[in-house]
Design a protein around this nucleic acid. Structure first.
Lengths: 237, 237
DNA sequence: CCAAAAGTGTTAGTGATACACCCATGT
DNA sequence: ACATGGGTGTATCACTAACACTTTTGG
C-alpha cells in the first residue's frame, strides 16, 4: 500500500477527576519507563490494532492505576459519555519516540469510590490537586487544562454531575461539588432554585443527619445517562 | 520498540459548508480509487508522518477539490478555528484497508468564493445539498451529521457566521444564513435586536440597493477571529 | 439556649418572545 | 400609487441576581 510508511502510534490518555477533601483532584502515575521516566503522567497508553479506543482507555486505566471492579464499573459509564467529547492531540513533536497521536478521555468518579483505591496502589498512582500538579510528561499539562475546561463546560450544560456524587446526596453536597469544579462560590437559594428548575433531580423521602443541626433532605438524579440541557443552547427564536 | 506492530493510518476529512441558492451545501468528491471507487466521499486523505493535521487538511483539500488561492486563504482561517473542535472517528472496522483513524474538520466559506470554484473542477468535486446527499463512502455520513450538529451549535454560541458571509452584508442576509443553517424561520425584529445585543457586528455607512425597495444598511463583523460568546455559558450565579 | 447548617421568598433587572406598522425605493 | 423588502417599538413573560430570616437538630 502506497502509504505504508506513514503510520502512527495511537494512544489514549485519561483525565480522571474527583473531589477529595473539598479539592478537585486527578489521578497521575509515575512513569516507570523512558521517556520521561520518573515523571508524572496521565494514565494511558498505546491502543492495540484491534481494540476500540474505549477498550484501550479502560484497559490502560486498569493496568496503570490498579483500580478495582467497583471503579471499572463506573468507568464503563464514563466511556459511554465521553465518546461524545474525544479530543485529539497530534503535534508533530509531542513524543520523542516518534509520531504519536493521542485521544484524551474525561472521567468523573465520586469521592467514596476514590478512597477505596487510594490506599491500594499509592506508589504508582496518586491523586493530585488540580491547583498543585507536579511537572508532567509530554503535553499532559495541556491535555489536563483542556479537560478541565471541558469539565466546567459540561457540568453547566449537562447532568454529568451525577458521576461526581454517590447515588443520594444533599443539596449542599451537590452545590459543594459545583463550587469546587467551578472554583466559585454559589448562592444556595439561587442554586437550589435553578437545579430544581432544570428538573434533573428527584427528591427522596430520606434525610441525612450529620452534626448538630437540621437534617438535610436527600436527592437523587432522575437520569443516570448523559443528558444535554439543550434548552440553553437553542437561543434563537 | 515494543509496540512496533500497533501502528495506525491517520487521515483527515474536511466538511466544507457553504450556502448556495438558499441551501446549505457541502463539497464531496468522487473517489477515483478503491475502496468505494466511484462513490462520493468527503475531501481528505492520509496525513504524512512529518506533517501537522492542519497542513494535511489544507493540502488534501487543495489536491482533491482544486480550490484556488482565494479559498486557501479562507481555509487558513478555518484551520485556526477548528483545531478547537477536532473530532475523531476510530472504529475498528471503519476502513477495509486496515485500522484507519480519522480526524474531522469543519470549514465554512461564503457563497461568493464558492462560485469561483464550482466552475473549475466540477467533474471531481461537487456541491451537494445537505438534505440530498448521495450514498457516501466509509462512515462519512456520520462525520457529516456530527459536523452539522457542531455547526448548529457553533453558529449560536460563537461568531463563526463571519465565515459564511462576505466582508459586508445586510441584516437580512445574515438572518438568512442563520435560518438556512438552523433550518428554522427567525423573527427579523428579534434577530436584529439579539445580534446587536451580542455586539459582534459594526454597522458601516454603506448601504446596498437591490430591487424596488428601501436600501439596506451594510454591516461587518467586528472580529474576524473565532470568539466564544461565553456569557451564555457561565450560567450559575 | 446556643451553635450550626438546612431551608425558603421577594424584588428588581435583564433578556426572550410575540406581534404590526411605517419607510425608502423603483416602476 | 403600489409593490417590495428594510427597518423599528412595545408589552408580557421567564429567568437571573441579589439579598436575610426562620427551622431543626445536638450538645
Amino acid at each position: 500500500m502506497q502509504f505504508e510508511q506513514n503510520k502512527f502510534y495511537l494512544t489514549v490518555d485519561i483525565v480522571v477527576f474527583t473531589i477529595i477533601q473539598g479539592e478537585l483532584k486527578i489521578v497521575l502515575i509515575k512513569r516507570k519507563k523512558e521517556p520521561h521516566r520518573g515523571m508524572f503522567a496521565l494514565p494511558g497508553g498505546f491502543v492495540n490494532l484491534h481494540e476500540s479506543l474505549d477498550d484501550a482507555a479502560k484497559r490502560e486505566l486498569h493496568e496503570e492505576t490498579g483500580l478495582k471492579e467497583v471503579f471499572l464499573k463506573r468507568l464503563h459509564v464514563f466511556a459511554d459519555i465521553n465518546l461524545k467529547r474525544l479530543r485529539v492531540f497530534a503535534d508533530v513533536n509531542r513524543d520523542p519516540r516518534g509520531r504519536v497521536v493521542t485521544v484524551s478521555y474525561l472521567a468523573l468518579i465520586d469521592g467514596e469510590t476514590v478512597k477505596l483505591h487510594a490506599t491500594s496502589d499509592a506508589e504508582l498512582a496518586k491523586w493530585f490537586s488540580i491547583g498543585n500538579l507536579p511537572e508532567l510528561a509530554f503535553d499532559h499539562r495541556e491535555i489536563i487544562e483542556d479537560a478541565l475546561k471541558e469539565l466546567r463546560f459540561e457540568i453547566q450544560m449537562t447532568n454529568i454531575a451525577y458521576q461526581l456524587l454517590g447515588p443520594k446526596f444533599t443539596m449542599s453536597e451537590l452545590k459543594n461539588a459545583y463550587e469546587i469544579v467551578l472554583d466559585k462560590e454559589l448562592d444556595k437559594r439561587n442554586f437550589s432554585k435553578r437545579i430544581k428548575l432544570l428538573g434533573i433531580l428527584r427528591p427522596t423521602t430520606e434525610t441525612k443527619m450529620e452534626g448538630a443541626h437540621r437534617p438535610a433532605q436527600l436527592f437523587e438524579f432522575k437520569d443516570k445517562e448523559y443528558t444535554f440541557l439543550k434548552d440553553k443552547i437553542n437561543v434563537f427564536v
